[in-house]
């Protein structure tokens, strides 16, 4: 750095005057440690200013005259103004502090309430979802009931076959809208890799027609499945088939079978 130019800039004179920023003060302090010319310059500027300012004062008081006061309490010596309690000012400050405290308290309370509202509104949303689900459930059940009660419904019980005698199912067949409702309550869950497949049968000759597989059997709650059936079915059977279903029923896996009793 160009020390001469730095000195010539006049910054050191301002340094002694005491009106530079804290950062500039620290920079100059560091430079003084590093460059004796800068330190020397500051010392001379200071000496000149000390002499000039001293010349304004004709005399100075003796150090001993106030030496005793050095270690007294701050307030006694510094405060030159007459001490008058300023009640308006004190009251003002007290009021401000109270007001501030009140504001903070109000703000806290407000935040707490907001959190509570948030919690309550989340709970409300969850309840609404539950109510909605319950309503749907109820509507579905009503539909189901209405469907089963329909006067056109033919009820076909499907009895357990062979090794699966303990199983059963029931088909409600509405010929008017070509739909069957299969009640699979008496069937076990399909094992992994297997699905229930529903068959419509004609007896003479024995011809099975697939009505499809029940892929969501295990997850369904009421185990009642609506399946469309446009065939002139004479019987219904349910077999356990590999996933995806089969072209024709695997007779060893025929669980339940039921014959349509009469044709209205």
């Amino acid at each position: 750095m160009d020390i001469k130019a730095y000195i010539e800039s006049g910054i050191l004179e301002l340094y002694v005057a005491g009106k530079l920023s804290e950062q500039e003060n620290q920079e100059i302090y560091a430079l003084m440690q590093k460059h004796p010319e800068i330190l020397q310059e500051v010392l001379e500027i200071e000496a000149a200013v000390v002499k000039l300012t001293a010349s304004v004062s004709p005399h100075s008081i003796d150090f001993d005259s106030f030496k005793g006061k050095l270690n007294e309490d701050d307030g006694k010596v510094i405060d030159l103004k007459p001490r008058k309690p300023n009640w308006i000012s004190y009251t003002g400050w007290a009021a401000s502090i109270l007001l501030l405290g009140g504001l903070i308290w109000t703000l806290n309370t407000k935040n707490q309430l907001e959190e509570e509202i948030q919690t309550v509104s989340t709970e409300k949303q969850l309840l609404e979802i539950e109510i909605e689900a319950a309503r749907n459930n109820l509507a579905n059940t009503k539909n189901l009931l209405d469907a089963i009660r329909d006067k056109d419904i033919i009820s076909v019980p499907l009895g357990g076959q062979g090794d699966f005698a303990s199983t059963y199912a029931k088909v409600y067949w509405n010929k008017a809208d070509n739909t069957i409702y299969l009640d699979g309550e008496g069937l076990p869950d399909a094992p992994a890799g297997k699905v229930w497949q529903v068959w419509s049968l004609t007896l003479n000759p024995l011809t099975p027609t697939s009505l499809g597989t029940i892929d969501d059997f295990n997850t369904d709650d009421n185990k009642i499945f609506a399946i469309s059936n446009a065939n002139d079915s004479e019987a219904f059977g349910i077999t356990l088939e590999p996933e995806g279903g089969s072209q024709s029923p695997t007779m060893e896996q025929l669980y339940t079978l039921g014959v349509v009793a009469s044709t209205p």
Binding site: Q26, E46, F66
Partner: peptide, 28 residues
């Protein structure tokens, strides 16, 4: 001026621990 000067030096004495030479000259 006499009164104030005393106060200034008493204050400086009491606040001596706040002075740090890196922040400026003692005279300043």
């Amino acid at each position: 001026a006499d009164e104030l000067m005393q106060d200034v030096f008493i204050k400086a004495w009491q606040k001596s621990d706040t002075y740090n030479s890196s922040k400026g000259r003692f005279f300043t």
